[in-house]
Simulated scan of single mutants.
Amino acid sequence: MILDEEVQQQRKLKIEPIQGSYNSYLVDEKGKRDWSGNIYLACLATILVIAFFT
């Protein structure tokens, strides 16, 4: 289900100058992972394994 609410997430940015270039920077974005999809898949896989072996 798609909600009309916008979720604010804080992003961690690491900005480094690129060696040998003028006024160019490398931006490394580190964000939090969303584990909800992985947890859902793990539960589904566990249920399927239990159903297969019983």
Rank of each mutant, 00 (worst) to 15 (best):
M1S: 13
M1I: 13
I2L: 15
I2Y: 15
E5C: 14
E6F: 15
E6P: 14
E6H: 13
V7D: 03
V7A: 05
V7T: 08
V7I: 07
Q8H: 02
Q8D: 04
Q8T: 01
Q10G: 04
Q10V: 03
Q10S: 07
R11S: 12
K12W: 14
K12C: 15
K12D: 14
L13M: 08
L13H: 12
K14Y: 09
K14L: 14
I15Y: 15
I15A: 10
I15T: 15
E16C: 09
E16F: 14
E16W: 08
E16T: 15
E16Q: 09
P17S: 11
Q19W: 10
Q19G: 07
Q19C: 05
Q19I: 12
G20E: 05
G20C: 03
G20V: 06
S21C: 07
Y22G: 02
Y22M: 04
Y22A: 06
N23V: 02
S24I: 05
S24A: 08
S24H: 10
S24G: 01
L26H: 09
V27Q: 04
D28W: 09
D28E: 14
E29N: 08
E29H: 05
E29T: 10
K30F: 13
K30H: 13
G31F: 00
G31C: 00
R33W: 02
R33M: 04
D34H: 10
D34W: 10
W35G: 05
W35Q: 06
W35L: 11
S36V: 06
G37C: 04
G37M: 06
G37Y: 06
G37Q: 07
G37T: 04
N38L: 12
N38R: 15
N38E: 12
N38I: 14
Y40A: 12
Y40K: 14
L41Q: 11
L41E: 14
A42D: 09
A45Y: 03
A45W: 03
A45D: 01
A45E: 02
I47T: 06
I47N: 00
I47M: 02
I47E: 00
L48N: 01
V49N: 03
V49S: 06
V49H: 03
I50F: 01
A51I: 03
A51S: 06
F52C: 00
F53R: 01
T54A: 03
T54N: 02
